[in-house]
Design a protein around this nucleic acid. Structure first.
Lengths: 206, 206
DNA sequence: GGGATCATGTAACAGGTTACATGATTCA
DNA sequence: TGAATCATGTAACCTGTTACATGATCCC
């Protein structure tokens, strides 16, 4: 009865890494007016229907306050309680220097799997555009390179299986494995084409 | 202090529904020889590297035994302990009639979101092909119809936003929302093209 | 007076990840 | 002798979902 000791990895994220939702909160705080630190209720509205973030990630109040507590524990935000007459007191949050550094690190890093495009990359794209449009173009370019390499690797694996039917007679039908790879390749190609479309800078016809 | 009362929904799954991993276990038990009921260790190997299921879903021994216990509680499998000399006793599992009915129900139902193609639909495809190739073709056809309707809906939403820039002057840039929809549409189109390719029945050139 | 909004949380539930415990036998 | 295989699980930890508690003020 000694417990685990190691670190847990959840949902493709590295050990100790913050969730996409927590990074989104850092991004919102970075975009807030310096003189007007945001509070939880205010932030919660940005994750609701009709708001751009709400189309990518939904965050119920319970989880939102939970994440803010985590960010405070990590030292990435600074909390302050402001009493207001005739209202519940507000807990306002400011981004610390460490929090800003973490946000910048996250924003500069493309995601490594196609399945992360739908949530995590969309969040990075949103905040990169909000905070610094020039960084947005860099992010799209680097994400394109990562997915391009992934597509090449998948295509090579497909070609390899077609050439060498591994262990002839082991009873395993290789066609399913190839279908799986082809699906991944198709999804990756679709993401690449989408990146090219939003990266913009439409090349003029020669 | 009264608790919640309602039902929880996890990961797009309906309340009370079994996970993809549990259905995969039902599928493996259905494909097993009737005289040779499978045991946990045996099943675990099928989720490892190099096996077709391992390319879609990984299942560590801990979770596998956990799922088998759940399936037993639901009455979908029947467990029996067989002592063997000089070895830890085996717990073998047989599919019950209720378990077989649940498997058939699951296999006949296409997934409703594009993101579920990568895991849940691939599992259905694998077991449909293993248990009854004719059912596989039906599944692909019905999945095609579901995703086709989804693509139409996404295209309509994109067209709608282009036409009516909701609430002029509300300060929200609509281009991000359109980019999100376009990504979903691109991923759905990729899945549709892949379905057409694996659904096969390649039409001969006229 | 009643519902919506402001504002912050907690309780209970559900599920997944990982390391580790246990202990025999077979094989190099 | 020591590593791998057989074989089944548990302990500790993590994230996430939903309902609910609390209590004021504003608007109809």
């Amino acid at each position: 009865v000694s417990g685990r000791g190691g670190a847990a990895r959840r949902g493709g994220r590295a050990a100790g890494a913050a969730s996409p939702a927590e990074h989104a909160l850092l991004g919102l705080l970075a975009a807030a007016e310096p003189g007007q630190p945001a509070h939880g209720y205010d932030l919660a509205r940005r994750f609701g229907e009709g708001h751009p973030l709400g189309e990518v990630i939904r965050l119920e109040p319970g989880m939102l306050y939970h994440h803010l507590k985590n960010l405070d524990r990590r030292g990435w935000v600074d909390a302050a309680t402001q009493p207001q007459p005739g209202r519940p007191p507000r807990r306002t949050f400011r981004l610390t220097a460490e929090g800003r550094a973490e946000l910048d690190r996250w924003l500069a890093e493309p995601v490594s799997h196609t399945r992360e495009i739908r949530l995590e990359f969309l969040l990075k794209l949103y905040f990169a555009g909000l905070l610094d449009p020039s960084r947005r173009a860099v992010l799209v370019r680097e994400q394109r390179a990562v997915l391009g390499a992934l597509a090449d690797s998948l295509a090579a694996q497909i070609a390899g299986r077609a050439a060498a039917p591994a262990d002839p007679g082991d009873g395993i039908d290789p066609s399913f494995g190839v279908a799986v790879l082809r699906l991944r390749l198709a999804q990756t190609h679709a993401a690449l084409a989408w990146l090219d479309a939003i990266g913009g800078a439409a090349a003029p016809e020669p």
